[in-house]
Nucleic acid binder design. Structure first.
Lengths: 167, 167
DNA sequence: ATAATTTCCTACTAAATTACTCAGGAATTA
DNA sequence: TAATTCCTGAGTAATTTAGTAGGAAATTAT
């Protein structure tokens, strides 16, 4: 059993979006800098996440990515199977050359196992991790260290809009 | 998330041992032929299974492998982590360059997730699959098709011993 | 004693996957 | 118009997977 870096990156990045969800879109440049993942690689991963309908991209300055659903409605299984290829079951299903029922036997075994695995992972939602006590504070603290002022930026935008409405 | 062929082969082969457990050691040649896995590759996998204390090898004619514990005391997690390398957690633990607590955050996330995953898989024992209704009959039927007379062979041995004890 | 059968061990290799880099295009905002 | 961001595709080095090859050591049957 292997939890590939691909899947890890995917979930970690989605965690990041979940934490900064109320503060506007998150840029891949920020995630790249904070987590030490190459920007282009992140772009490829997010291309898959977007195609799976998990995130939405916003182009242009001030843009970035945001979750397309609330984090309580996104589970780990979805993320991993969007980014990684799906768990593939026995050869049997591909080649279809079941010999005397034997192949079908192990086929069923793996079907059941991967189903149960999927069920298990889909029972864990993103917000279950993102909303754990103390995490938000930690995230803000870390953002400051990494020179990532997403919340401050958001606040500045709000103030600018207020200023505009006055003039 | 990927369930590598390595892990699949491992579990499938162990299933085979579990099913034929009461009929003496199972040769890798039999498994190789039945499941279409290369013999040398199986040998490598079983080397790992043996080092993990899951199977015992018996050399010479009539030899093979047998489970070193009853199949009810062997679980899927053990097999997979014996054959596959272990689930590795974030880079953090390796390089130890946690920046401002951020890396440690995702580290904890993955630790928890992989722990839960491991717990889940270790809750599924080998005999849970091997002793499902109808499987034993299917296995015997399949063995005949593949020219695999392990039960017959065992019976012959018993008869020979009886014959010897008479003379 | 010899031959056959099996595990056991090590080193090599082709194919696939992973984790990137690079080079640019398209949309949006300042 | 310039800057910023997403978006796309093509290429690439390192690693892993899945398998070959060749043999040594232990055991049993003849």
């Amino acid at each position: 059993m292997r939890l590939s870096t691909k899947g890890r990156y995917g979930v970690t990045a989605m965690m990041d979006l979940a934490i900064h969800d109320n503060a506007g879109p998150v840029t891949l440049a920020d995630i790249s800098q904070c987590q030490g993942i190459s920007l282009s690689y992140l772009e490829q991963l997010f291309s898959k996440l977007r195609k799976a309908g998990l995130v939405e991209g916003v182009r242009g300055p001030g843009g970035g990515y945001r979750l397309s659903r609330p984090s309580s409605e996104i589970n780990i299984a979805e993320i991993i199977s969007a980014v990684d290829e799906k768990v593939d079951v026995t050869r049997c299903s591909k080649e279809g050359n079941c010999q005397g029922g034997e192949r079908c036997l192990t086929h069923d075994l793996w079907m059941e196992l991967s189903n149960r695995l999927y069920e298990f992972l889909s029972g864990i939602s993103l917000d279950q991790f993102a909303n754990r006590p103390g995490i938000h504070e930690l995230a803000i603290q870390r953002d400051k260290i990494n020179g990532r002022f997403i919340l401050a930026r958001r606040q500045a935008e709000v103030l600018q809009q207020q200023a505009r409405s006055i003039t």
